[in-house]
Amino acid sequence: MIQFRAVLTAFASLAAIGASAALPPATAVAAPAKAPDWNRRIVATPEGGWLIGNPAAPVKLIEYASYTCPHCAHFMAEGMPIVRRDYIATGKVSLEFRQFALNPIDLTEGMLVRCTATPAAAVALGEKMFADQQAILDRAPDEATGERLSATPPAQLHTALAQAMKLDEWATKNGLPAPRVKACLADLSLRDRIVAIRGKAIESYDIQGTPSFVLNGKALEKTFNWQALEPQLKAAVAGK
């Protein structure tokens, strides 16, 4: 004879198993969306520059700079790390770098920067130029060499200047294939693009020297270093 208590116990165990099996699977908790790394977002702009950061940032900063300008190199070393860390990284500020060429060396360096495969590579090579600026300029042609180079036909000028300053060797050491360096230095369309950026800067903002900054469409007066730029940038962010 089956004992009634044993049946009840067995039934209760089966019911518990059935109830457990009938429970819906646990809902997976979605991981929080990862914030964009705006410092890694670099694109070429129609104006010929490279924009770093959130393209929809409410505060838009443009820097006009020359690769041979010591004040530009100083800003790159002193101010740029703070701009990247405290402003671009938040998504509230974007920075567009535009070259403002001052001389044939500038043009030659800019042509090499435009040899790179991506906007991010262009920005990285430009920053390396600023870091190595003094060593590069230490190899600038003397007066006699400069006169000889001035007689060089335009199509060969930048190749000859790069060879005289060993800029072609510097470029290959910093990742540009030698055949590409040779081709880019002979490509006068790259030079013409840089010259056009300078002309547009003068026309649009009356830029006369470097570094110069444009903040939300307005050229900043007497702003040539990080100490002068920072309070204006901070105020612009606070106002948004």
Rank of each mutant, 00 (worst) to 15 (best):
W38C: 08
N39H: 07
R40S: 15
T45L: 10
E47Q: 15
E47R: 11
G48H: 06
G49Q: 05
W50P: 00
W50K: 01
W50S: 09
W50Q: 12
P55F: 04
P58G: 14
K60I: 06
E63S: 05
E63R: 03
Y64Q: 07
Y64R: 06
A65C: 08
Y67L: 14
T68I: 09
C69F: 08
P70T: 11
H74C: 00
R84Q: 15
D86Q: 13
I88R: 01
G91F: 07
K92L: 15
V93G: 09
F97G: 00
F97Q: 06
R98T: 10
Q99V: 09
F100T: 08
L102K: 05
N103Q: 09
N103W: 01
N103D: 15
L107C: 02
E109S: 07
G110M: 07
M111I: 11
L112Y: 06
C115Q: 09
A117E: 15
A117S: 15
A117G: 12
A117K: 14
P119I: 12
A120R: 06
A120W: 06
L125T: 01
E127S: 14
M129E: 05
F130S: 01
F130G: 00
Q133S: 04
Q134Y: 07
I136Y: 06
I136Q: 02
L137P: 04
D138M: 09
D138I: 01
P141L: 03
E143W: 00
T145N: 11
G146Y: 04
E147Q: 15
A151H: 12
Q156P: 00
L157Q: 02
Q163W: 02
Q163R: 15
M165S: 08
K166C: 03
